[in-house]
């Protein structure tokens, strides 16, 4: 039992905490080359008056404020407004900019799930992700296992996420190799007629917009 485990003898906290959670190793290691570089660069820019600490903090806050709720609002709009959906599929950057979600210099491609096609997004080279619509990527999205396996055995990967696709559905994997960012437009769940845009948005999960899950059922 983890709660019975007492480990007073070790200086390093190994094993479990008294409440049964594994300890994370202390990161008492020197800064890496790039961490030092980042601190030096930031300090110089602030010293020279090019940046202020407040501006840096505001930018961090803005990055942290982005969440999958942005993408969910886009999907719900596409489910309820056929003209918006057509614009989204034709030019994802412009359509989402209409809603106030600016993707910056990147371009957005929205790919639609249908009865015949299921789309899934990966970045084999690094961790490209539509951060303006979905926030920071989950850790597994950046893992070597997800990045290498999704292009080789997507059905097995999807099945591990709980998504078993029938054999007559074509899987389309999208590898974000360059300047595009991708969002999956999942199929609107059955039984949602008459629901408002806000109610629909609450059904749209982050994983359904990456393509490794389905929206919630009402």
């Amino acid at each position: 039992m983890p709660h019975d485990h007492h480990d007073h003898d070790h200086f390093h906290h190994e094993g479990m905490s008294p409440s049964g959670h594994p300890y994370r190793a202390d990161n008492d290691v020197p800064l890496t080359y790039w961490q030092t570089m980042e601190i030096a660069m930031r300090e110089i820019l602030i010293e020279k008056g090019i940046l202020t600490p407040e501006a840096v903090q505001l930018q961090i806050d803005a990055m942290d404020a982005r969440s999958p709720a942005n993408g969910a609002a886009v999907v719900a709009r596409a489910w309820t407004d056929p003209e918006f959906k057509a614009r989204l599929l034709a030019n994802g950057s412009d359509a989402t900019r209409e809603m106030g979600f600016d993707i910056g210099p990147m371009h957005l491609v929205a790919v639609e799930n249908t009865d015949a096609v299921h789309n899934v997004i990966v970045c084999t080279l690094c961790s490209c992700y539509p951060r303006n619509l979905l926030g920071l990527p989950p850790d597994w999205y950046k893992s070597r296992a997800y990045r290498s396996r999704t292009v080789k055995e997507p059905r097995k990967v999807l099945s591990e996420f709980g998504l078993d696709l029938p054999d007559d559905v074509t899987v389309r994997v999208h590898d974000s190799t360059a300047d595009m960012r991708y969002i999956v437009l999942p199929a609107r769940p059955a039984g949602t007629d008459g629901m408002s845009e806000a109610e629909l948005a609450a059904l749209v999960t982050r994983d359904s917009m990456i393509g490794v899950g389905a929206p919630k059922q009402p």
């Binding site: 899987v171 590898d175 190799t177």
Partner: peptide, 19 residues
Amino acid sequence: EIWGDGAERPEDTLDAEIY
């Protein structure tokens, strides 16, 4: 085309951006 006949499902597709 990418993985040969041993592909998980040979008719599935992969899109990538190439210069």
